[in-house]
Design a binder for these strands. Structure first.
Length: 651
DNA sequence: CGCGGAGACCTTTTT
DNA sequence: GGTCTCCGCG
């Protein structure tokens, strides 16, 4: 039996002990939100709810896994039948079983953001004659279409309101978007948005399916509810429509995903939608020192729209946050690196320290300086493990074997052949689409012999590679990946990349990772949904000192560190100038600042350079962020002597 | 038709 | 730093 009295405070225990009905839990930063949710799931199981009757939707897979792992430990049981994961994973699981009801084949292909971008670029080329330089490219268009769909709007509604500078292109964009939609359908492809929209459509339009899920899930729990969009809220409502045991947990002050359609109103209006819902607040903060928490509270008070809530600290007094103006960007990088070396000297492990920034490019100088000084760090920026070119290349070989109609994969591997470019790839692809079995046709159909002499050797090698992979079908996935390397991809790596060795090692890691899947199809499906760096999936080894984490604020959600540095606390950066164009932008940026600040347990450093060099403008002076200047002076201790001067003296 | 080099331009946040 | 385009060479 679990001793709830011992392990939970009064507020948390109330939430855990509630038997059912709609529940809204407003949980502040560091208030033991995960702990409460975990205990509640354990409690539900303890009081007779079968594991298969619980659905737990969280924001990241990592969070879901962590939570289910904890439940397993608490209950000493296998929670394999408990449904937990991101909305996208859960959607995929449901759609795999019912895709035919929506007119898709069950083996539909999921395309990620990068594939979607290229797909859209081709749609633009097909539908717009002279797109011109101002016509949005595939990646921009993808974001806009995605935003519209995630907010249940049409482009005609979204463009004038949010992207008025694109109004000239509205008509053409609508045509492209429609073409994109029909092409996806034709090729049996879904993007990330389709997963959610189709899941909702499945539940809304097919009563038998809706009832089978709604009856099964006696309890529906949603974490990070402030970041859900309309589609996700509808899905949870539909899933809970039978038992009405829906519990949502979130912190309105930490809503930072409006840009991709997250709907602030979901959490604010939850009590209106469920009139009988009980509202709980978790207001004790166990994470931060009173000084850090006080600053966070003062900052977020500047936002108009929020639930009344005041976080109380329980930790003893510590040191106030420090504001550090530096002479320039380089000095900022020097300061952060220098201070980290000192902290490590004081006994902090690198893994207890994080650098959090607004945008990836804010970390450039820092990254170089940290490397130069030999500080171990992990950067969770930019291209992630599973999105790197070499990883996608290798999976593309597997994709055409599993699904010979996978256009994205064919184009990719054709383009990898020496002396094969756009034109040749296009010609071969057109030829392939006319065959009943494109793979067999490619292997035996003689298309290779029709291309120019220069391109032929490359394509012959590709044919041999695919033949070899197909012959090994059913073998251990790791072995198959090695075959791909040996049959020519290794050579390509050597020629194409200076860091070929590193990439080769990545692929061996991928082979190890792949070995846990029983079928290639299963592996590929997981690859399509995964983001994040591969290494982290396994977690840091406990004994190690770890590495300093460099991360965007968005990716730091839900995490905590002893010491947090926030570089670029300057106007134009936090808040980001671009984001302020949106009327809601300032409040969202302030929430972002709030999230960053509340990640810190013991020490917080807010840095900004006084001067910056901008292209075309030369040296400009930089003002500290409004999120700092709007605080009362007593909150943040100003160093009397700026650190950059002090560093100069040291040298 | 492919490819490499040069140069311009732009950089928000992500499941 | 990354991505895209343009251009001249093979």
């Amino acid at each position: 039996m679990i001793d709830y009295d011992l392990d939970l405070n009064d507020e948390q225990r109330q939430v855990v002990m509630e038997t059912g009905g709609p529940l809204l839990v407003i949980a502040g930063a560091g208030s033991g939100k995960t702990r409460t949710l975990t205990y509640r799931v354990a409690r539900l199981l303890e009081t007779g709810c079968p594991p298969g009757g619980v659905l737990l939707a969280t924001f990241t897979n990592k969070a879901a896994r962590a939570m289910m792992g904890r439940v397993a430990v608490l209950m000493s049981m296998d929670v394999g039948r408990l449904w937990g994961g991101t909305f996208h994973h859960l959607a995929h699981r449901v759609l795999r079983a019912h895709a035919r009801r929506l007119g898709y084949e069950n083996n539909f292909v999921i395309i990620d953001a990068d594939d979607a971008k290229q797909f859209l670029n081709r749609c633009i080329a097909a539908k717009v004659k002279n797109s011109g330089t101002r016509f949005p490219r595939g990646d921009v268009l993808r974001d806009i279409i995605s935003y519209a769909r995630n907010t249940d709007q049409r482009l005609e509604d979204v463009i004038p309101e949010r992207f008025p500078y694109l109004e000239d292109f509205l008509e053409a964009m609508t045509v492209v978007a429609a073409h994109y939609g029909s092409e996806k359908k034709r090729l049996n492809v879904m993007d990330f948005d389709d997963l959610l929209l189709n899941w909702r459509r499945l539940l809304a339009d097919h009563e038998d399916i809706r009832m089978s899920y709604a009856e099964r899930f006696r309890h529906v729990l949603v974490d990070e509810y402030q970041d859900t969009n309309i589609v996700q809220a509808d899905i949870t409502d539909l899933l809970a429509s039978c038992h009405r045991n829906i519990m949502v947990v979130g912190d309105d002050a930490q809503s930072i995903y409006a840009f991709r359609g997250a709907n602030y109103a979901n959490i604010m209006k939850f009590p209106d939608k469920y009139r009988d819902c009980k509202v709980f607040k978790l207001e004790v903060n166990y994470r931060s020192t009173p000084e850090i928490l006080h600053m966070a509270n003062l900052s977020i008070m500047n936002n108009e729209r929020q639930f009344e809530k005041a976080l109380r600290a329980v930790r003893p007094r510590g040191t106030p946050p420090v504001l550090v103006p530096l002479r320039n960007v380089q000095m900022q990088a020097n300061f952060v690196s220098q201070r980290i070396i000192e902290l490590i000297g004081d006994g902090y492990r690198p893994g207890e320290i994080a650098i959090l920034y607004r945008a990836h490019f804010h970390a450039m100088e820092l990254q170089m300086e940290m490397t130069r000084r030999g500080i171990p760090f992990t950067i969770r920026s930019g291209i992630r493990f599973f999105e790197q070119a070499h990883i996608k290349d290798v999976t593309s070989y597997l994709r055409v074997i599993v699904n010979p109609n996978d256009e994205m994969a064919w184009r990719r591997i054709l383009g990898l052949c020496h002396r094969v470019g756009r034109q040749t790839a296009e010609r071969i692809w057109l030829w392939l689409t006319e065959r009943r079995d494109p793979l067999a046709a490619f292997l035996t159909g003689g298309i290779v012999e029709t291309v120019t002499a220069a391109a032929r050797p490359g394509l012959v090698k590709l044919r041999e590679l695919l033949q070899a992979v197909r012959d090994r079908e059913g073998d251990d996935l790791g072995a198959i990946i090695e075959t791909i390397l040996k049959k020519g991809y290794e050579t390509y790596l050597q020629v194409a990349y200076p860091d070929a060795e590193q990439r080769r090692e990545d692929l061996f890691s991928l082979a190890v990772y792949a070995a846990r899947f029983s079928t290639t199809a299963e592996f590929l499906q997981e690859m399509a949904l995964l983001t994040g760096s591969g290494e982290e999936e396994e977690g840091e080894p406990e004994g190690g000192d770890g590495r300093v984490i460099m991360s965007t604020i968005h990716q730091a959600k839900g995490l905590e560190w002893s010491v947090v540095f926030i570089p670029w606390c300057a106007e134009g950066m936090i808040p980001l100038g671009r984001a302020l164009k949106d009327p809601e932008g300032e409040e969202e940026e302030r929430r972002l600042f709030y999230v960053a600040v509340t990640r810190a347990k013991d020490q917080l450093y807010l840095c900004y350079p006084v001067v910056d060099y901008r292209r075309g403008m030369g040296y400009v002076s930089v003002r500290p962020s409004r999120f700092i200047s709007e605080l009362t002076p007593a909150t943040v201790s100003h160093r009397r002597r700026p650190y950059d001067q002090w560093l100069v003296e040291e040298e």
